[in-house]
Design a binder for these strands. Structure first.
Lengths: 351, 351
DNA sequence: GATTTTGATGGTAGCGCTATCATTGTGTTG
DNA sequence: CAACACAATGATAGCGCTACCATCAAAATC
């Protein structure tokens, strides 16, 4: 397999003893037990429940582990205990730093509790999500994190019969698979519309991605405007919502003669791209065109001019998702099936 | 554990049969075998080597799998076969989309070959990397992807004795642990210095992160300038290299009176932040201050003004890393231990 | 001092799958 | 039609670990 195949465990860096009795050559828990002169189960306990082992024994075992360079085999452990210590997370895209931040807090929280996170990118496709879920279930995760609440029928079926704790995120639904932590995109759309109307804008445009959640925001946004007799200019961008697509979307609007109005973008990145387009035409923000983002990325506050946007606590989503899964796993009660982390509108300089 | 605990496999969504004989309630390969009337090993073969099974049998088995909703247990399979079908990847940060893109191609390529990628974030800390590597090895990955070539002694030791294919990326070294795929940061630093000198700049600054690779680039940059008798203005940013820190770094330089020169940033994001700072002071780019980025992020070409930067093929790194690991795993020969993917300087409007 | 409790350890029997070798039946060859 | 090759399937024996129940000695209880 590898070029170093022929090196045995004991060669290379000295220090290590030859202890393995198995054909495979790697050190096992049995080897450690034999070395210390205890039974394998005691070594297992030393690893998993250290306080159930006498301090002296524990000490000897830890020494033996260090000497041999023993690395536990979680495949075997997981098979025997039915606890994989693995949590699967399915996100649309890691390149989108919005999701990355949520997942980071999720991972960090779980790591502290002794779990690892297996990440899968679904790319906003339901079918991709379904196959990822299936693939991931074969590792018998102790919990699953999903982005969004829209899953194919088959995906739901598989998840339910897997009998594994599931947390859905970034959105809300009254009927979660298990637990849902997020906020209402419907309300965001309406709130932004009302905010902009309140600021006196009547010329209003929108550049939006076409994923589930962006679509919900857009629809609520348009509906609310319509209720006030305002018809918005629409330019559609497809995910991924990139700087370039934001610039293109803005160009489209400007080419159609859009001026002296405000544009709502489905991500801060889109708005950032739009700003470049506006500046390249020698127009000013918010003088000629006002901009409204979504996400409150770290850079939004530091742009010039600083971007007005919609803020929500994505780290909180990751944290609460991890905590909810841990509670489920430990058999503790989870106070709420549906957790709304809310959102707020941040007014800066672009509106 | 979960609120749905009491639902058996057969309830909920109909369609599923009660076949499990085990206490755990989940369908096993044995259950499928019994249902079809073949031995378990035949079902195993149907899953892993379908062409070794008669088409008729295969068909019946697949039907039984669909009917029962059987999900293979890779913990058991991996334990028995010593193939986890898991590849571990350790990256400094997923929020940094530069790494995310490499990892995406890496994952995609491996997924097609039937592998899953377990991601760990090391946050540019050697100690964190070491503990991640240890944690990850207990899952018995079939291969490991590392970012960078600087690893703690203990980390190297553990990796070597694990006898697992390793690919190091994003950098070069004549002595890789196994395989290395990247480019020379030393050469980048020198090349950028020469490029800027060639453009006639004599007033030169640098705003740089302090991770291993950025430091190497900076040093080569400064050395090359020094060799031409130019002393650069230095402002240090710490990772993560964010928009905000770029803006701060630029502010620092400007406050010190830096003007009519060029600044080299260790990431495009830093340069983007710097642009905001420059514009906020009513200065022009590249008239008053010229900017040079690093990474050629997708947005760099679409900024206004478009950012001059250093381009390298990060997708190629991910792809080649995956291919190299697959070759090692399959026992094929790997043509080169050291693969240089090179880089190039992209001149746009900011220099 | 007899009994119960507690703490530390061990024996046994799997977890669900696959490697290996063995067996059967079918086609192929001279 | 014997001799062989090959395709399809099966029996057995683990992979490395932990759950479960048992054991035994020392401490605590009356």
């Amino acid at each position: 397999m590898a070029r170093r195949k022929n090196e045995s465990t004991s060669t290379g860096h000295g220090k290590r003893e030859v202890v393995s009795s198995r054909a495979t050559g790697s050190v096992t828990l049995d080897d450690v037990a034999r070395l210390v002169g205890v039974s394998p189960i005691t070594v297992s306990r030393a690893l998993n429940y250290p306080d159930k082992v006498a301090p002296k024994t524990l000490d000897k075992i830890n020494q033996a582990i260090a000497r041999t360079g023993y690395v536990p085999n979680l495949l075997a452990g997981g098979l025997a205990s039915k606890k994989s210590r693995l949590i699967a997370a399915i996100v649309p895209s890691m390149a989108n730093s919005v999701y990355a931040e949520t997942v980071r807090l999720f991972s960090d929280t779980l790591r502290e509790a002794g779990y690892q996170v297996l990440l899968g990118e679904s790319g906003h496709h339901d079918s991709q999500e379904e196959s990822l879920v299936s693939a991931v279930l074969s590792r018998r995760p102790d919990g699953i994190y999903l982005t969004g609440v829209n899953h194919s029928l088959n995906c739901r079926r598989v998840l339910l019969s897997a009998n594994v704790p599931v947390v859905e995120t970034w959105d809300l639904t009254p009927t979660p698979l298990d637990i849902v932590i997020g906020f209402s995109h419907d309300k965001v759309g309406a709130a932004v519309a009302n905010y902009l109307l309140g600021k006196g804008y009547t010329k209003i445009g929108i550049v939006s991605g076409d994923d589930h959640r962006a679509t919900i925001r857009k629809q609520a946004f348009l509906d609310t405007l319509a209720a006030h007799g305002v018809k918005a200019d629409v330019a559609l961008a497809i995910p991924p919502t990139t700087f370039q697509l934001g610039r293109q979307g803005m160009a489209e609007l400007l080419d159609r003669g859009f001026r002296d109005g405000v544009v709502f973008f489905s991500s801060d990145t889109l708005a950032q791209g739009a700003l470049a387009e506006i500046q390249s035409r020698g127009l000013s923000v918010p003088g000629d065109i006002a901009l409204m983002g979504f996400g409150d990325q770290p850079y939004a506050a530091h742009m010039y001019p600083a971007l007005s946007t919609v803020k929500f606590d994505r780290r909180m989503i990751g944290l609460k998702a991890a905590q909810a899964l841990l509670a489920r796993i430990n058999g503790e009660s989870v106070p709420d099936d549906v957790v709304d982390v809310g959102f707020s509108i941040v007014e800066r300089e672009t509106t």
